[in-house]
């Protein structure tokens, strides 16, 4: 994993476990629903309207739509899930939980098990359709919640259990 990096980010090695391969499809559908879909629909609508009512505008409107709406939409749709899949990873270490996320801006978060307050597992309707889940490990600080998305259901259940167990066993200094 991550062979493209010359030196590991911030002197940390990446987390051991990659996201579930199905997460790519989930992210693709998400991209379609949130950004790419609306952009493409707008482009199509403008194109059709212009075709019907202002055919004279097509020579300049066509390229404009292509550059401003269609290409960014397709680019996001194709690139985001791939980049995300390359970055998203997680690991439960002996004393801390570690997760990497993001596609353009990368983020790695590490929270010691001794600070864990709650472990939440969430499954949205889309995630359920793909058999995925998100595990969020919270600490006393809102800037310290480790969110691991794109896990398979089974992994999520196991991880949540193990984090909860480990947090119970390790003497807490959560304040």
């Amino acid at each position: 994993m991550a062979a493209h990096r010359h030196h590991p980010q911030a002197g940390l090695r990446p987390p051991r476990h990659a996201a579930d391969p199905r997460a790519r499809r989930w992210w693709t559908v998400q991209a379609l629903l949130t950004l790419s879909g609306p952009l493409l629909l707008t482009a199509v609508a403008l194109f059709v309207l212009s075709l019907l009512f202002f055919p004279g505008a097509l020579p300049w409107l066509g390229p404009l739509l292509l550059v401003v709406l269609v290409l960014p939409a397709l680019g996001y749709l194709l690139a985001m899930p791939r980049l995300r899949y390359r970055v998203h990873a997680w690991e439960l270490g002996g004393s801390a939980v570690y997760a990497a996320s993001g596609w353009c801006r990368h983020r790695r978060r590490i929270a010691p098990l001794s600070r864990v307050q709650t472990v939440d597992t969430t499954r949205g309707p889309l995630q359920r359709a793909f058999g995925l889940a998100t595990v969020t490990v919270t600490t006393a600080s809102t800037a310290g919640a480790v969110k691991i998305s794109g896990l398979s259901d089974a992994d999520a259940r196991l991880l949540a259990e193990r984090v909860a167990d480990a947090a119970r066993l390790i003497p807490g200094d959560a304040s």
Binding site: Q9, A10, L12, G102, C104, R105, H106, R107, R108, R109, I110, A111, P112, R115, T139, A140, S141, T142, A143, G144, A145, V146, A174, S175
Partner: peptide, 30 residues
């Protein structure tokens, strides 16, 4: 410190820069 976060942008990755965030319970949190 409750947790650490390391974030970097494409520019940061090319130039060897990273932003580290210390999470605490209180104040601005991060």
């Amino acid at each position: 410190v409750q947790a650490w976060t390391f974030t970097d942008t494409p520019f940061g990755r090319r130039n060897g820069l990273v932003t580290a965030t210390a999470a605490v319970a209180g104040g601005e949190d991060g």
